[in-house]
């Protein structure tokens, strides 16, 4: 066994260099989803990726998760590849589809990462996460008995249960109604502030991006490139009142213009 190299505090948690992803279509045609993407995500920061549909933002997330292979370029998470992080069971992910297993209770769904990793289930840790997402009373419930927003809370708890080094969120609230979505964004902000896990969120919503992110990256449509990289200097923790501040609106207006510029 080699000793794990010491992680330098100033080293980025995610480092992407010259990333290109091509997809092969029928009859050998290829389409370039991502091109020339260079991106560093600082440890303990919250990065949001926005862009028009088909800009490859979900592909970017899939590459970081090791689900899609780069055609060219490199992706490092910490000192290793995404696959190494996956093998250590240190990657947390939540999708727009909650992906809860219908035959398991809420508790067992949150405990699933322990079982998949072949570790004994830490019931106290599962309970702690259920409490964090406000689902303590629903441990015995089945996913079909829950509302859409509650299912996403459980999916977030599942993503966090093994103390992930990186948290990836692919439009986790994209299928929810506006009121629930806003509520869950406030919740996610609170949860994230207690954990400070390096997070990458993909979303269509500019409000969501500005409310949650330390940084917002705007991508161009296919091939996806980084068009704009904006810091969000709003203080944390951010409560609901941030949504009505002038600084918040100035930032969302600015990003909306950037999105208009890249949308054909």
């Amino acid at each position: 066994m080699l000793a794990e190299p010491a992680v330098r505090q100033d080293a980025p948690a995610i480092a992407i260099r010259g990333l290109r992803v091509d997809f092969t279509l029928d009859r050998g045609r290829t389409v370039t989803a991502l091109e020339d993407v260079d991106l560093d995500v600082a440890a303990g920061s919250f990065l949001v990726v926005i862009g028009p549909s088909g800009c490859g933002k979900s592909t970017l997330l899939r590459v970081i998760a090791g689900l899609t292979e780069p055609t060219a370029g490199t992706v490092r998470v910490g000192a290793a590849t995404p696959h190494a992080l996956v093998a250590e069971h240190r990657l947390g992910i939540a999708f727009q589809d909650h992906a809860l297993l219908p035959w398991l209770s809420v508790f067992d769904n949150v405990a699933l990462p322990f079982r998949v990793a072949g570790r004994p289930v830490d019931a106290a840790r599962v309970d702690e996460l259920l409490a964090l997402v406000g689902m303590s009373e629903f441990g015995a419930a089945r996913p079909r008995q829950l509302s859409g927003g509650m299912r996403q809370r459980v999916a977030i708890a599942r993503a966090l249960v093994l103390h992930p080094r990186i948290l990836l969120l692919d439009e986790p609230f994209g299928a929810l109604d506006a009121v629930t979505r806003r509520q869950l964004n406030v919740e996610l902000q609170r949860i994230w502030s207690t954990q400070r896990i390096t997070t990458v969120l993909v979303t269509h919503s500019i409000d969501e991006a500005v409310f949650l992110g330390d940084r917002v990256v705007v991508m161009t449509p296919r091939p996806g490139r980084i068009f704009r990289d904006a810091a969000i200097p709003l203080a944390r923790p951010r409560g609901r009142e941030v949504l009505s501040e002038a600084a918040f609106h100035a930032l969302t207006d600015d990003l909306a213009r950037a999105l208009d510029d890249v949308t054909p």
Binding site: G66, L67, A87, I93
Partner: peptide, 9 residues
């Protein structure tokens, strides 16, 4: 679900 299991290792 398959993606989830893949990411969970």
């Amino acid at each position: 679900n398959r993606d989830l299991f893949a990411v969970l290792g």
